[in-house]
């Protein structure tokens, strides 16, 4: 289980990184933490000719509040998503989801940028970016652009990032005191990819839901917004009836595929149970 041979470059600026990709004729991969890429290379599922190590590009770092947004550099590590006080305060879904992402040693190396750029539909952070309405800052040969999370995830491991482009940072609307957030997932073992996971972010200045964002992982080819469930909650007080309506509405939101050992009906059922528990917890939190 050894990777195919490749060459290695270590740029220190975004421009150098993007140039390196072009110089490799496109047969290159960026690597940051490498926690998903290295196994794929070891299994020879991927075999780029060149590995571009972006871990030393300073412009990809940093955690700072910029007005109503929290800017997270793409190199922000999973462990920081949990430990950093700014993230815990302004992007609590990342803080809540982080302990469920793989295991401590993976979280010490893995980066948010790597996780979101890979867009594994079973991953926690991509779904949370969707739940938080984050914007992805992407750099390419033509400059940088921003893509909202709703338009970012396009298919299984497919995102708005074009070949050669680089995910630079996340811009996340900051959560305020009126937000209630919850995350949980159902995984066979701690740190496993979940059978289903869900992040909920509700704007509740009083006891009425004014805005709701709900995103699921492991229920389809991409992380999935549960828009019908969100609508079902608007204006509600998170009472049992509203929660049941939201659970029922998931049938419109989620279309998991039937798999040999996990039938689609099971995923939908678990998604409903999970959503019910999360909303129940948030309702009880008043």
């Amino acid at each position: 289980m050894k990777a195919r041979a490749f060459s290695y470059v270590r740029p220190v600026t975004i421009a150098e990184a993007i140039d390196a990709f072009a110089a490799a004729g496109g047969e290159a991969s960026y690597i940051a933490g490498g926690q998903s890429l290295v196994p794929a290379l070891a299994l020879r599922l991927q075999a780029p000719e060149c590995l571009i190590d972006i871990a030393h590009v300073e412009a990809l770092r940093g955690i700072e509040r910029q007005g109503g947004r929290l800017r997270l550099g793409a190199l922000t590590r999973h462990v920081d998503a949990h430990d950093d006080p700014l993230i815990a305060r302004y992007a609590p879904l990342l803080h809540l989801a982080a302990p469920h992402v793989a295991h401590p040693a993976i979280r010490n190396r893995g980066t948010l940028g790597g996780s979101v750029a890979l867009a594994d539909p079973a991953s926690e952070f991509p779904a949370m970016m969707l739940a938080m309405g984050a914007e992805m800052e992407i750099a390419g040969p033509e400059g940088t652009r921003r893509v909202p999370a709703d338009a970012f995830f396009q298919g299984v491991y497919e995102t708005a990032i074009e070949p050669g482009e680089l995910l630079v940072a996340f811009h996340i609307p900051v959560a305020g005191p009126h937000h209630r957030c919850a995350f949980d997932e159902l995984a066979r073992r701690r740190g496993d990819y979940a059978l289903v996971g869900c992040g909920v972010m509700l704007a509740m200045p009083g006891d009425v839901v004014e805005d709701a964002r709900i995103a699921f992982l492991s229920v389809g080819p991409t992380p999935v917004r549960a828009r019908a469930a969100e609508v079902a909650l608007l204006g509600s007080r998170l009472d049992e009836a509203a929660i049941r309506t939201a659970q029922t509405a998931l049938a419109e939101d989620l279309d998991p595929t039937d798999e040999a050992h996990v039938p689609a009906t099971m995923r939908l059922h678990l998604a409903r149970v999970l959503l019910g528990r999360l909303l129940g917890g948030l309702g009880a939190a008043t």
């Binding site: 290695y8 490498g34 926690q35 196994p39 070891a42 040693a105 993976i106 010490n108």
Partner: peptide, 23 residues
């Protein structure tokens, strides 16, 4: 060799990481 078993953990810059998941 794919970051699942934890037998290869070392400290890198003071933190446990998988030596099999780092070139």
């Amino acid at each position: 060799e794919m970051g699942v078993c934890g037998a290869c953990l070392v400290l890198m810059d003071g933190r446990p990481v998988h030596a099999c998941l780092t070139f």
